[in-house]
C-alpha cells in the first residue's frame, strides 16, 4: 500500500545541512500492523510525517497505492490525508476549546458533510472507543488515556485505510498504554485497518506482527 524508495530528508540548520533520514526503503502492505522502533532522535517522527504527507522528502520516491506522490498540489495531499490517513499523536493533539464530539468531527468538516451527520458519526466512533460517557467533555476534563481514545476516534471517523500513530502510548502509564495497544490490535484484526505504530518501547513493538528498527536515519532491522 505504501512504498518508500531511498527516502532522504535533511534540514538546513544555519549553514549546515542535518541529514535526518539517510536512505529509507520500506514497503507497508495492506492490513499490516507494523511498528517502527528506534531511540529518540533517530528520525521516527520525520519518517511518520513523510508517510503522512505532512512533509516532503529531500530525495527519493514515495508511492501510495502505486501512485507516486508529487507534492505539487496541496488539494490532493490534503484530500489524501483527510480520506486515507488517520493520525494519532503522543500528545493527543485535541483542540482544547472543543468538546469530545466536536474534536472527533474535525476531519469530517473538511468534507462538506452536514452538521447533523458529523455529530452522529462522531458519536458512533466515540462509542467504538468506549467513551460514550464523555461526549461533551473538553480535553482538559479527560485523563490521558481517555484523551488518546478520543484522538483514536478522531483518526477513525473518516474511515481511513491507514492509521499512523506516533508514540501513542508514550505519555501513558503501562496499563493504559496496553489498553490503547489492544484497541489498535482489535481495529487491525477486525476491520483490517493498516496501522503503523511508532515507538521507542520494545514491549509495544513486540506486540506488532512486523517490526522495523530505525537508528540514526537508517533502517537497521
Amino acid at each position: 500500500m505504501l512504498r518508500l524508495i531511498d527516502i532522504r530528508k535533511s534540514y538546513q540548520v544555519g549553514p549546515t545541512a542535518v541529514d535526518v533520514l539517510k536512505g529509507i526503503s520500506l514497503t507497508v502492505e495492506k492490513g499490516e500492523l507494523l511498528s517502527i522502533i528506534g531511540p529518540s532522535g533517530s528520525g521516527k517522527s520525520t519518517l511518520m510525517n513523510i508517510l503522512g504527507l505532512l512533509e516532503q522528502p529531500s530525495a527519493g520516491t514515495y508511492s501510495v497505492e502505486d501512485t507516486r506522490i508529487t507534492y505539487d498540489d496541496d488539494r490532493t495531499l490534503s484530500s489524501l490525508r483527510n480520506k486515507m490517513i488517520g493520525f494519532v499523536f503522543q500528545q493527543y493533539n485535541l483542540l482544547p476549546r472543543l468538546t469530545a464530539v466536536d474534536n472527533v468531527g474535525l476531519p469530517l468538516i473538511y468534507r462538506g458533510i452536514s452538521e447533523k451527520e458529523i455529530t452522529e458519526r462522531s458519536m458512533e466512533y466515540i462509542k467504538k472507543v468506549e467513551m460514550q460517557e464523555r461526549f461533551h467533555h473538553k480535553p482538559t476534563e479527560l485523563s490521558g488515556g481517555q484523551q488518546q481514545r478520543i484522538a483514536i476516534a478522531r483518526a477513525l471517523v473518516g474511515n481511513p485505510a491507514l492509521i499512523l500513530a506516533d508514540e501513542p502510548t508514550g505519555a501513558l502509564d503501562t496499563h493504559t498504554g496496553q489498553e490503547i495497544m489492544s484497541l489498535f490490535k482489535r481495529l487491525n484484526e477486525e476491520e483490517g485497518i493498516t496501522i503503523v505504530v511508532i515507538t521507542h518501547d520494545p514491549k509495544i513493538a513486540a506486540q506488532c506482527r512486523r517490526k522495523v528498527e530505525l537508528r540514526d536515519g537508517i533502517i537497521t532491522g
Binding site: L54, S78, S79, R81, N93, L106, Y110
Partner: peptide, 16 residues
C-alpha cells in the same frame, strides 16, 4: 500554530 498543524494533518487544505 499547533491547531493549524492539527487541522492540516486532519485534511484541511490551505484554502480552508
Amino acid at each position: 500554530r499547533k491547531e493549524i498543524g492539527i487541522r492540516r494533518a486532519l485534511g484541511a487544505q490551505r484554502t480552508d
